[in-house]
Amino acid sequence: MVNEKTEDRGDRIAKWLARSGVASRRDIERMIAERRVKLNGAVVEHPATFVTATDAVSVDDKLIHGPEHTRLWRYHKPDGLVTTHRDPEGRPTVFEKMPEGMPRVVSVGRLDLNSEGLLLLTNDGALARRLELPSNGWLRRYRVRVFGAVNERELAGLAKGCSIEGVKYGPIEAALDSRKGDNAWLTVSLREGKNREIRRVMVAMNLHVSRLIRTSYGPFPLGELKPGELEEIPAKVMRTQIPRDVDIGSKRRA
């Protein structure tokens, strides 16, 4: 009986907005606390509020049309863009650079302002959160240009994990690809990327990162995408690559 009543009431508004591609549930809960979300014209006071198909929901007074088919894109993020919808410093954002007609999307994880390369985008906030989880075991691979003397033994030691300024980092696979003078290119791979992890680990090894490019995220490669280019991943590819319990290709219930 409890499930039937929940079905009649619809979805919790944070879940509904996440599946509509507005943001992650955590960010939506923050938006609700900031009184930016309205249901049928009234400010939403609690994330446990329920939404049905007949309700009108808005964020920042913009009407949200509700969940659509789950979609996923590969995007080559250029240097100089922040991965956020609103930047308090007024810096250009990834989402401001989306082409006309692009639905509202959220990113799967983030890339720093000065980092480049593959960024996955989706119109389903719940999927974004799911694909970020370390439990997926997805490898994130990077090409990293550093300045300084590279110690290959230290690089190999990162596979055991490390601790820097009290922060513990999991295993990192790192290898020297090429060296020219004081500059070198590395391939670095990890399964759980903490904030600015690669840069902080490199600094601890007396290496300065001058360029950082993500070349793959799990089964999805950057491929031949040029900076600023965007390409949708076909639903049939998504079905074979992402967790089986995620509904792909059918309209998600509002």
Rank of each mutant, 00 (worst) to 15 (best):
D61K: 12
L111Q: 02
R104I: 01
A126S: 11
D61H: 14
H85W: 13
D79P: 01
T83C: 15
G41A: 14
L81D: 10
T84Y: 14
S107K: 02
S58P: 03
V105T: 06
E116R: 15
W73Y: 10
G109S: 04
S58Y: 07
L118K: 10
G109F: 12
E96P: 01
R71P: 02
I28F: 03
A53H: 12
M102D: 03
K15Q: 05
D27C: 08
E100M: 05
T70W: 13
T83N: 11
A23I: 02
S20C: 10
D27M: 10
P99G: 08
T49N: 02
I28N: 00
L39P: 01
D124Y: 11
A14Q: 13
M31Y: 15
E68V: 08
N123D: 06
H46F: 04
A18D: 07
L127P: 03
G41E: 12
D124I: 01
S107I: 00
T84V: 12
V108W: 03
G90A: 12
T93C: 09
G90V: 00
R36W: 00
T52E: 10
L119T: 04
D61N: 15
G80K: 08
I13G: 02
V37S: 13
G41L: 14
Y75K: 10
H46Y: 10
H46P: 01
A48I: 02
N136V: 02
G109N: 03
N136M: 07
A128H: 12
R26I: 02
K38H: 15
E132H: 03
A53M: 07
Y75T: 06
N40T: 09
P67Y: 09
T70Q: 12
K97W: 14
V57H: 07
L72P: 08
S107L: 05
R91E: 08
F95T: 00
A126Q: 08
V44K: 00
V22F: 08
G41F: 14
D79W: 14
G101K: 11
G125D: 09
E34A: 15
V82F: 09
T122L: 09
N114L: 06
S115M: 05
E116L: 05
E100V: 10
E34N: 15
P78M: 06
D55R: 11
G66T: 09
F50T: 08
N40S: 14
F95I: 01
V108I: 04
